[in-house]
Amino acid sequence: MERSLDHDDYPAAAARARSCGAFIPDDEDEWAADEPCSCFNCRSRRWTPTAATCMKPGMAP
């Protein structure tokens, strides 16, 4: 699994979150995607200038 997603790749963020057993929704005010279950709405993502990176231990490639 890729550790980072381009910050505009909403379909990939949703698809990845759906298949991830570690998705935990962040505070709703920090959600960035319309689809609730998305890496972009996960508590374990960290935004960088161009991407969202998964910070969950064990999720790195």
Partner: peptide, 8 residues
């Protein structure tokens, strides 16, 4: 990453 947010 584990705690409540600043907004709360």
């Amino acid at each position: 990453l584990e705690s409540r947010g600043t907004g709360e």
